[in-house]
Amino acid sequence: MNRRALRKAKNAAFLVLSLIATMTGLACLAAILWTLLSHGLAGMSWHLFTQMTPPPGGQGGLLNALYGSAVMTLLGILIGSPIGVLAGTYLAEYGRNSRLSTVIRFINDVLLSAPSIIIGLFVYEIVVVHMGHFSAIAGALALAILAIPVTLRTTEDMLNLVPVGMKDSSAALGAYPWRTTLSVLYPAARSGIVTGLLLAIARISGETAPLLFTALNNQFWSTHLNAPMANLPVVIFQFALSPYKDWQDLAWAGALIITVTILVLSISARVLLAMLQAGRGSGR
């Protein structure tokens, strides 16, 4: 009886600990969001979206940084996602069981969690060094390389979810795999692939480290892809570490914008995926 009570007590203790752990995790999320909101909302104003980043002590906004982030993220996705989708298609359709695919799958998973700063160094070495200067296109390339593993993984997973019968039916009509893929499999897996794109955008739009020595930063308005370009993460980095109150406020405002954007993207991706699963469940 005594032993039984001891076991129960031990059980209760560990369960309480696990509850505390969960509370801690949620508290961290709440604390971060709260700080972001309280500091960021204070700095929110129209100036953010209409003015350039200011010199210390001056008044300004984040327009050039927002523009730069949008351009480089977009370019990164435009370059990276087709590669990811095509490679994912190869793994799911052509090379499903080949040795090459096994290796690529493994390497891709490694790239998925590889430190992004390394990718920054890589692009610095192959692009910036050869061009002789930092540029927006180098930044976009670094982001593209980060987008590839995410889109590849989701594309393969989503294509594998398409019922085999659909692929066989198309082949049975005499369609070549390319036709089956483009006309049947991609539409069937569309929301899944879009989810992957959203996740990739969420992943790269907050990346700082790979931009530090590729796109660098630019205090001024610049639309040249061949020149350094301002971007939100690097501006936040520089302004937050500066001793100037104005700059720190701008950094907080930028941090709030970036976090809200990414959370909205991640949540939409999740909702899309949930809808997809619900549709699959009732559709059959």
Partner: peptide, 8 residues
């Protein structure tokens, strides 16, 4: 096929 496979 056994299961209906309408294309999307």
């Amino acid at each position: 096929f056994q299961k209906p496979t309408p294309f999307p």
